[in-house]
Amino acid sequence: MSDAVSPDVPTLEVVDLVKTFPLSSGFLSRVTGGVHAVDGISFAVGRGETLGIVGESGCGKSTAGRTTLKLLEPTSGQIRLLGRDITRLSRAQIRPIRREMQMIFQDPFSSLNPRMTAGQLVGEPLGIHHLARGAERIDRIEALFKQVGLRPEQMDDQPQQFSGGQRQRIAIARALSVKPSLIICDEPVSALDVSIQAQVVNLMMDLQDQYQLSYVFIAHDIAIVEQISHRIAVMYLGRIVEMAETKTLIGEPLHPYTEALLAAVPKPKPGMGRRRKALGGDIPSPINPPPGCHFHTRCPIAVARCRVERPALRTVASGRQAACHLR
């Protein structure tokens, strides 16, 4: 499938993706409202590229990832994988295509079936997609184990016998087994110790270089995202508020929310670096989001216009977008 795609077609294109969860109440379960988890986001990821998505808990970044993979049914918008529109494919239709898009989950303690061995877990996708069986499958599993830094002798061990970092390596080997084009990583390192985080991120970057993988790397920690991403999208309450090359976004953030996120990163030395701007308050409810700019309730520079008019995600410079009336 990937051979037929010309190099200028992005691996993944998402256009105006909306995911609303209906809220029902009462005896007959009438739909009385909705949670606007993802409120019209657009992005593209090229071959061999990593797009980081950052934002606070509850901003819709995980929902965005899951909806993109069609694990949740999108409410509206379009998802194109390797140029092919997969938005309206049924569950059965999408199964063979899932080979091209894999997912790594946040918690390696719950994303690996405790009743299967590490080898079975890594080999399972090969079986589902009829890629290898018997001795060939064992060989492939061994090779994958070595590739992610596990020893093939550990194949018969169960997930409980591994540490968090090792489990995440199993999850990576599993995703890698079918040679996908795209891996969506939903907070893949936030459940790990800091020292292990770097190892896993390095492993993921090595694998990307080797296989020209595209990643969507979802995390709440902008420092980790900065390390792995070529471009970063900042999400707030279901919308992308700023998207730019990593260096540009970190160096000179445009949106006040991006500034606040950066200010929250601990500094190696006190008193050096960025200006501190602690953000007060909580993220508003996505059931009843504030009108205008979603961020105006917490924005240090908000003006009257921000309370009424929704700022569009404008292209500010080449490859750089921000959604703020004032910047």
């Binding site: 946040q106 690996l112 399972e124 589902i128 997609h129």
Partner: peptide
């Protein structure tokens, strides 16, 4: 559980998710 979602994201058919 995430591992059920993970199996679905791998493209596992429903019977496989249920029985394995």
């Amino acid at each position: 559980n995430d591992y059920v979602l993970a199996a679905e994201s791998l493209g596992a058919p429903t019977w496989l998710i249920l029985f394995r």
